[in-house]
Amino acid sequence: MAVETITETTQYLTFKLEDELFALDIGKVREVLDFTTITKVPQTPDYMRGVINLRGSVVPVVDLRLKFGMVMAEQTVNTCVIIVEVELEGERVVMGAMADAVQEVLDLEPDQIEPPPRIGTKLNTEFIKGMGKHNDQFIIILDIDKVFTSSELELAREVEGAAA
């Protein structure tokens, strides 16, 4: 969904990675968990932190900082796992996304959202739905369905299956 297709007020869950503010459409968020023990799965990329037990289900957890090329951070009392539903070839995959801290749920009007910046041709910004503006601060609105490639989501599904 590009910015042009955002025609009504939408609720977003905002969260921090380093000093940047990001947001996810609240419709993609299932819940937010306190940071818990993550079981590492061998031979997975660094950003694939492992799996957690969510009420008897195995859920793969991705460190968004590492996925976006940021430095790994120490866990704090604010570190959390955002449980999201991602579409993969018409099927829903439940994943955990580590964030430094969850901020708030806020409503953004269509006129508060700008198209993502064009940063040259080699950089893929397809996963950025838009740039929100709230209280003189930019919010990077993610399209969680496009943050991960289909091969990365397939890996998440394999990790989930291997750990189950």
Rank of each mutant, 00 (worst) to 15 (best):
T37I: 04
T37D: 07
T37E: 08
T37H: 09
I38C: 02
I38E: 03
T39P: 00
T39G: 02
K40H: 14
K40A: 12
V41L: 05
V41I: 15
V41P: 02
P42D: 06
P42M: 05
Q43D: 15
Q43G: 04
Q43L: 11
Q43I: 03
T44V: 04
T44K: 02
P45N: 08
D46H: 05
D46N: 11
D46C: 04
D46I: 02
Y47W: 14
Y47H: 10
Y47I: 00
Y47D: 06
Y47S: 08
Y47F: 15
M48Y: 14
M48I: 13
M48L: 15
R49K: 13
R49C: 00
R49V: 00
G50W: 01
G50P: 00
V51R: 01
V51G: 00
V51I: 13
I52A: 05
I52G: 01
I52N: 01
N53Q: 12
N53C: 10
N53Y: 03
R55P: 11
R55Y: 11
R55F: 11
G56A: 12
G56T: 11
G56F: 08
G56E: 10
G56R: 07
S57R: 13
S57G: 03
S57I: 04
S57K: 12
V58Q: 01
V58L: 01
V58G: 00
V59Y: 03
P60C: 13
P60S: 13
V61Y: 06
V61S: 03
V61G: 01
V61C: 06
V62R: 09
V62Q: 09
D63M: 02
D63G: 06
D63R: 01
D63L: 01
L64I: 09
L64E: 12
L64V: 07
L64Y: 11
R65H: 13
R65V: 02
R65E: 06
L66P: 10
K67H: 05
K67Q: 06
K67V: 07
K67S: 04
K67T: 06
F68D: 02
F68G: 04
G69C: 09
G69K: 05
M70G: 03
M70F: 13
M70C: 07
V71D: 13
V71Q: 14
V71W: 03
M72P: 15
M72T: 11
M72L: 13
A73Y: 00
A73D: 02
E74A: 09
E74C: 03
E74P: 04
E74W: 06
E74D: 15
E74Q: 14
Q75N: 12
Q75T: 08
T76W: 10
T76E: 15
T76G: 12
T76R: 14
V77D: 14
V77T: 08
N78G: 07
N78Y: 04
N78I: 02
N78F: 03
T79H: 00
T79K: 00
C80V: 12
C80A: 15
V81D: 09
V81E: 09
I82G: 03
I82E: 06
I82Q: 05
I82R: 04
I82Y: 06
I83P: 04
I83T: 11
I83A: 12
V84S: 08
E85T: 11
E85P: 03
E85I: 09
V86F: 06
V86L: 12
E87D: 15
E87Y: 08
L88F: 09
L88Y: 06
L88P: 03
E89V: 10
E89W: 10
E89D: 15
E89G: 11
E89S: 14
G90T: 10
G90W: 09
G90D: 13
E91H: 11
R92H: 10
R92P: 11
